[in-house]
């Protein structure tokens, strides 16, 4: 019953939400763009603010740390996606099996998601990865090996591990609900058609999960592009763990120039869009149909 009248009424009622959302997005975006063309030193009264033209963009881009930081960002995003999806599928299949104490186990698996990134990174840094007293160090010594100095020798891997640990529950949860919606008769039909377990996984389970995997990839990418706390409390951006987000933070800190940081922010937006376009090309077709 979408008459002219009710349609305009609907528009009117949706307007506040739309305006709020647009404002939420557009105001910061416009401010970032505005500042990126200016020099602005809120903490340095001796420097006058003023127009910078494209100076900030050129300075940010020509810094030797720029391309390595883009690479680091992509490696972390890619690594975490790979680990969370592979382990997430395995865990989801495991949790889908009928077992004793299923409810409790499922809640335990979700638990890491509720731990703040700062806290979980600190826990990992001090309890697991500490080269002297960490659990891993003890484990390595138990087997007679030399403890690994995780955060400096395997810094990127360590961060990927920490972030994966945080995001694995999310991936598992979404994939588990997807697996639960798989029609058991399809698997039985495939079994009768002569497909052994691994082929049933490849031909039936995996295609069924395609959409859920796509959603996990897209949502995680959005959040992983901007991870910060995990790097801040562990390596502080050293040992090749400086992501684009972290580089922006450092450049603002050292130059005190909000304009320079804003230009970096615009690069980050461009990077996010490039990644998004690639992702949509690769996995986006799973979303329609």
């Amino acid at each position: 019953m979408a008459t002219q009248h009710s349609r305009s009424a609907a528009r009117l009622m949706m307007a506040p939400a739309v305006i709020l959302l647009l404002g939420w997005m557009l105001v910061p975006l416009t401010m970032t763009l505005w500042f990126s063309f200016r020099n602005y030193f809120p903490l340095r009264p001796d420097r006058e603010p003023g127009w910078a033209g494209f100076d900030n963009y050129v300075r940010f881009f020509s810094s030797s740390a720029f391309w390595p930081s883009v690479q680091t960002t992509l490696v972390i995003v890619g690594g975490v996606l790979l680990i969370t999806i592979v382990l997430g599928i395995l865990l989801a299949i495991l949790l889908d099996q009928p077992m004793w104490g299923q409810g409790a186990v499922r809640i335990l698996v979700i638990a890491p998601f509720f731990v703040m990134p700062t806290v979980s990174a600190l826990v990992w840094k001090n309890m697991f990865m500490d080269p002297v007293n960490g659990l891993f160090a003890h484990l390595w010594r138990f087997f007679g090996a030399e403890p690994v100095v995780w955060l400096s020798d395997a810094s990127l891997g360590s961060i990927i591990m920490i972030v994966s640990w945080q995001w694995l529950p999310f991936a598992t949860l979404i994939l588990l609900t997807a697996i639960q919606s798989l029609d058991g008769e399809q698997l039985e039909a495939a079994e009768m058609d002569g497909a052994p377990v691994h082929k049933r996984f490849v031909y039936i389970v995996l295609p069924h999960l395609a959409r859920a995997i796509t959603i996990v990839v897209l949502i995680q990418t959005i959040f992983l592009l901007s991870i910060f706390a995990e790097i801040f409390v562990t390596t502080g951006g050293a040992f090749g763990t400086r992501t684009l987000t972290y580089l922006i933070f450092q450049r603002v800190l050292e130059s005190q120039n909000v304009g320079l940081g804003s230009a970096g922010g615009v690069y980050a937006i461009i990077l996010a869009n490039i990644v998004a376009i690639f992702l949509m090309r690769i996995v986006g077709k799973n979303l329609d149909a």
Binding site: D183, E185, Q186, E188, A189, E191, M192, D193, A195, H208
Partner: peptide, 17 residues
């Protein structure tokens, strides 16, 4: 089941979507 040389038609059809 795969080795019994029997084919089954399910009530829900169980086609691979």
């Amino acid at each position: 089941p795969a080795k019994r040389r029997l084919a089954m038609v399910f009530q829900s059809y169980a086609l691979y979507p």
